[in-house]
Design a binder for these strands. Structure first.
Lengths: 360, 360
DNA sequence: TTGTAAGCGTTATCAG
DNA sequence: CTGATAACGCTTACAA
């Protein structure tokens, strides 16, 4: 069945597929209307098998690939989800991203990653760009914006904030992470191992989770009847350099302590180096505990005892959560529990003589 | 100057900005035509100051944000650049991404990150998605596709491949990284320090750079008159686990060696742990050298001697390169040189008695 | 089941 | 300098 008079002679080498073929050309080549091609593309209606075949053949021959922009504009759906991270290159966020990405592909969404570099203005700017891109939902990894502002942005697309507790609603929700309990468990472990003087290198006080971790440390101490001693706390910045400097200050000040609990693993890396430089052995002289369980922490020398965040799992939860929100399904987000991973940077020590510690 | 009869009474609380305002509404509110609004938005023509002001005021009041999709469809420009990475969560790629992202914002492009998980089919799929999104250019971090396939994809948008040497043209170019020289330098350093039996833990043989690193190691050995000994080479996989296993095999086989050169830092982390488990001291018993200089390598215990890749800089080069290609400007990409960073996992040893080594 | 035609929200070409 | 008006490439009623 031939179409027109010279239809076949006209395009001798059409399989060379010009860079950007359009739906209309496929329709023409297959001898059907544009709508039919569209239907086949979207499976939105049944089409006669022969036309189906003709269209598919044309698509393959021309190497046709629908223009996502046009498609989204026409349909009103972009099938994209914005993922705002504070720093793409942070080893910590990397795992979250992986969990998010993997779980997003299945329901058919494409993540668009942007990063705000721990900067509030950047955070706003990136968020607006995502909205301008008409993402259908947004996952924020540690937003700095306050709740009212988030709610305002959430009017455009549902948002899920990781590591934050919010008044959850259909458009804005937070997936809190139980940092306090994690820090308390880690500190308790140290106490159970006989440590009484435990130093702490804190994270930036502007971070909610850093504060929670400090609180967990303090509470464990108080619960054990040891009491919080501000003299054992040094300020870090969640980075290796900060941990190194803080540990140096701590050692220079010479308070007595047998263990150091760091607000995150990167801080612990820095502290570890400071001790190595001074010839302080871990864990023989000082026990060390981190927080996060970064992939490399189990390869430290010795392997680091730390609080594990199920990062990949958190990513999955976030991805599933935002998809449900987009689908207007209600979701319930319970705080993610963290678990202590006991490795080799902590050791039991004999408690110094008697003290007021209670049994059990 | 009033517009219509009840224009003002009609919208009492329009500043509540409905989720998605469109250009047309701004035009109406400002009393101008859509084209004028568009002109102001793009600065594509001069407009009377008063209209300019009226429009800007309306934009602010309605909190209007142009629809990127519509804009791109109409203009044919998306101002996006696809960045295909093998693994978003790899600590190695993270730094490249940062360099790329930072240098892309300035020329006004937005990166779209996707990852192919070291899988060829995924690589193709992600690339097609990027093309369907009409990105204006693509940066690939270690493509697995062969050159003809890359060239085919490059017909849609210019592509720049990091870590690969290609026949550079206007649409497809590679930014090679001098892995061979880096590996040779590292091996030479070990030789200069007196080591003669140097083991090597290789990367996956499917990776071009892994092969180059092995070659560099071999060449340095041969140049020094030591000769390559396959018995000193173990297979790794660029991951910590592979390094750990390889080192264990190596130690179990008991060939004599005083140093181990690992194809990348992650491998070295694994090897380090294997040695720690066996009580083998670094560098007193065995010297260790890595490759890449990941951010945490300088915080290892002891800090790792390794070959530094100027990752952030490479990211910059890539970003600038792809932008130039998009602008049809010619670019010249010279191989990126790597430098050895001598830290504390290597030590000088007394060469065992005499040997055929030449002076100098 | 299939085709026609009217958008989707902007930009861009032309007159004026 | 500004306003109609026609694209941009696809989806989607509405008819047939």
């Amino acid at each position: 069945m031939t179409d027109g008079p010279n239809e076949n002679r006209d395009a001798p080498k059409e399989d060379i597929s010009s860079p950007n073929v359009k739906l209309e050309e496929i329709a023409r080549a297959a001898g059907v209307s544009p709508s039919t091609v569209s239907r086949i593309l979207n499976g939105s209606a049944r089409v006669l098998p022969e036309k189906q075949r003709a269209v598919e053949e044309a698509i393959a021959r021309f190497n046709y690939r629908p223009n996502v922009l046009a498609r989204s504009l026409a349909s009103g759906r972009t099938a994209t989800i914005g993922v705002l991270t504070q720093a793409v290159s942070s080893p910590f966020y990397a795992e979250w991203l992986r969990g998010i990405e993997e779980s997003l592909y299945e329901p058919g969404f494409t993540p668009i990653f942007v990063s705000s570099r721990w900067n509030l203005d950047d955070e706003k700017a990136r968020l607006e760009e995502l909205i301008a891109r008409r993402v259908e939902g947004v996952i924020l990894l540690h937003a700095q914006l306050d709740e009212p502002s988030l709610a305002e942005y959430a009017r455009h697309a549902p948002m899920l904030v990781l590591g934050r507790s919010l008044h959850n609603g259909p458009a804005l929700a937070g997936l809190p992470i139980d940092n306090l309990k994690g820090a308390r468990d880690a500190t308790r472990h140290l106490i159970e191992e006989g440590h009484r003087e435990i130093a702490f290198i804190a994270g930036p006080s502007s971070h909610e989770d850093a504060i929670e971790r400090l609180d967990g440390y303090r509470i464990a101490l108080e619960e054990a009847g040891i009491g919080f001693d501000a003299g054992l706390v040094e300020q870090g910045d969640y980075l290796e350099t900060g941990g190194l400097a803080a540990m140096e200050r701590l050692m220079a000040r010479r308070p007595t302590f047998s263990a150091v609990f760091c607000a995150n693993d990167q801080t612990a890396y820095g502290a570890r180096l400071a001790m190595f430089r001074r010839g302080v052995r871990v864990p023989e002289d000082i026990s060390l505990v981190g927080f996060d369980d970064l992939p490399t922490s189990s390869y430290m020398t010795p392997p680091l005892t730390t609080v594990r965040q199920p990062t990949f799992e958190i990513g999955r939860l976030a991805a599933q959560g935002i998809v449900q929100m987009i689908r207007k399904q209600s979701i319930s987000l319970s705080p993610v529990p963290l678990t202590l991973v006991t490795r080799e940077t902590t050791r039991r020590i004999a408690p110094p003589a008697s003290s007021g510690a209670q049994p059990g």
